[in-house]
Design a protein around this nucleic acid. Sequence first.
DNA 1: CCATACCTACCGATCGTTCGGTCACCAGTC
DNA 2: GACTGGTGACCGAACGATCGGTAGGTATGG
Lengths: 203, 203
Amino acid sequence: MPVSVFQSAPKGAPARTADVYRAAAALMVEKGFGGTSIGDIAQAVGMTKAGLYHHISGKQDMLYQIMKHAVDALERIVCTPVRLIDDPEERLRQLMRLHIQALIGHGLAFATIWSEVNHLVPAHREEIRGRVGEHLELIRETLRELSENGRLRSLDVNIATMHIVNAITGVSRWKFQDFASEEEHLIQETVAYTMAALLKPAP
Amino acid sequence: MPVSVFQSAPKGAPARTADVYRAAAALMVEKGFGGTSIGDIAQAVGMTKAGLYHHISGKQDMLYQIMKHAVDALERIVCTPVRLIDDPEERLRQLMRLHIQALIGHGLAFATIWSEVNHLVPAHREEIRGRVGEHLELIRETLRELSENGRLRSLDVNIATMHIVNAITGVSRWKFQDFASEEEHLIQETVAYTMAALLKPAP
DNA sequence: CCATACCTACCGATCGTTCGGTCACCAGTC
DNA sequence: GACTGGTGACCGAACGATCGGTAGGTATGG
């Protein structure tokens, strides 16, 4: 049983608020921010629109809160543990594995970070972009380390970084339609595919 | 000057209708189907909402028409020329190159095929999914051919196929924000990255 | 007794869509 | 060359539905 992305809402134990965020995230990934109405979200958690507003302060702010929690969880579940791994190759493998597992396991809150950022007001957008940028920097840094060790193929580190996160988020988009119930196989194949793209072949 | 995706609307020369589709596709890729209003599209082409309805028969049908044209163009610009290439490796390289160039060059109509399919009514959704499936089959078949020639690494062909189209569509999402004006470099790096992931290393 | 969690009822704004009408431009006819 | 009729392209105004959001009330648990 994975730790929820929304384990800590504002304060105390508003477990229902977490339900709201979870349902909202799932709907927004499926139908987009503009295509998801407050009424849809309320219905998904068995409430009325008015009842929802006890838990949220507005539609856009809710999106912002979801993304903030998702970015926090990304830091907590993926980045922090992974930074402790010394070997850059193993660090990258674990980063991908943990990120994909988180994406699949915890509702779909994570996915909003990548797909719905531009529905935020500019100030919030910059904040989320910045924090996502830290995550990208972790990948970039690992690639640079691999490069210094002479284990990386000759490639553009910035573009490779984008391809890595693109593969990760891509997997979470397929999971729920084309490749149900093969999670472990999917992760192993994806990690192997990416590693083959990055590393020099074994001599 | 590239051939437009919308070169042939219903009949004759309704050049303005093509403008409408183009603007609609661009807006929908940027803000999603639900987040793009008819008024937005009308404003983008300098018309009123009412005037728009001279060119379209409804919002959902417009999305369907856009996707139909995009799938046709994909067949015409990418699949058909590429099928004439004998060597499977070269065929795959050209497929990626042509697809990315098409995605970047022709407004953004192509991108809707992948991102907005589930806003269609079920009947149309199945139709588009089927035609996109033919495109996936071309990639899968090429991978199988490479495999028979002993040039493919040991990998799951279905998953690899998804990673390939995922990389292609991913590139078109970055292009307009992070990597402006480096199109050729972007394509070369992406093709090299993907080929390294797929092929056995040269002996 | 009071905060929490939710409701019914409603608001103004915006949504997709339709209707009736306008204007430029074309044929054909006298 | 003026007159008529038709057509394609568009607009202003309005339709009912739905949108995000609010006001005020109620039931419940501590």
